[in-house]
């Protein structure tokens, strides 16, 4: 049988364009202990983060370890992800390590760091596909948000009650199926009826921009990675119409 002489006429490997050797992280610390903390975050090394954070805490105050080690490392991870050098798993394992380290520092401080705000997340009633929500949770927590995770297959009543009780800066809803995402509009209507205008970011699977922008409060979330930026906007006072204008138009 004949063979293919030139695959370039069949497909183009756009993924290989500019895919040279990894450039790696561009942050470092002159302090040996903080350098170890930075490296643990950048490598997502949850096995060793506790040891290096404790080592750093032996000579430094917790806020220094947090700001110059953990958060600085996580900011660099975000840059590497944004520039396409890291994939999502590298960002997730880095956030795991960072949050572990943060927990140790907060215990030493004797208090939790003040969170940027509270976000309630859930997966729609009838839907057990919550992986997208879990990614959103991890990214929000790594970016300094208090996340109230309502879990999967969450009844409309429970979402509405949680918003009323906790008054979050933002709510998120994830759904894989079009036949479960209809719960989002019911949540929106109930919140509006009770006087809440909380931005309600919805996304996942078959959820579309057209659908989400068809009801009030709805802001379409195309990708989990957008969640921290959207939460920042909500904290900074953007309402759901402003957020929709910024992210969905």
């Amino acid at each position: 049988m004949a063979t293919v002489a030139n695959y370039a006429n069949i497909f183009t490997r756009y993924d290989l364009i500019g895919a040279g050797a990894a450039k790696g992280a561009m942050v470092s610390s002159k302090d040996t202990a903080l350098q170890k903390v930075l490296e643990c975050v950048l490598e997502g090394d949850s096995d060793n983060i506790a040891a290096v954070v404790n080592e750093a805490l032996a000579t430094k105050d917790p806020m220094t370890v947090i700001n110059d080690g953990l958060i600085r490392g996580m900011n660099e991870v975000s840059r590497l992800w944004d520039e396409g050098e890291y994939y999502l798993p590298q960002a997730i394992v880095a956030s795991d390590a960072m949050l572990q380290g943060l927990d140790i520092c907060e215990k030493k401080l004797g208090q939790s760091l003040e969170k940027k705000g509270t976000v309630i997340t859930h997966t729609a009633e009838g839907d057990i596909h919550d992986l997208g929500q879990k990614i959103v949770n991890a990214l929000l927590r790594a970016n300094g948000y208090n996340v109230i995770d309502l879990g999967k297959d969450v009844p409309v009543d429970d979402v509405v009650a949680a918003v009323k009780k906790n008054k979050p800066v933002m709510v998120t809803g994830t759904a894989l199926m079009t036949t479960t995402m209809t719960a989002f509009e019911r949540i929106s209507n109930r919140l509006l009826k009770d006087g809440f205008e909380t931005p309600f970011v919805c996304g996942g699977g078959a959820v579309s921009l057209e659908y989400v922008t068809g009801y009030k409060l709805g802001v379409y979330g195309k990708d989990a990675s957008q969640a921290p930026g959207m939460a920042n906007d909500a904290v900074n006072g953007l309402g759901w119409t402003d957020m929709r204008e910024k992210w969905n138009s």
């Binding site: 994939y87 999502l88 997730i92 394992v93 795991d96 919550d130 992986l131 879990k134 990614i135």
Partner: peptide
């Protein structure tokens, strides 16, 4: 969906 609770955690962590 058996084992999904594990794979959801591990796939996104490679």
């Amino acid at each position: 969906v058996g084992g999904k609770e594990i794979s959801d955690y591990t796939i996104v962590r490679q």
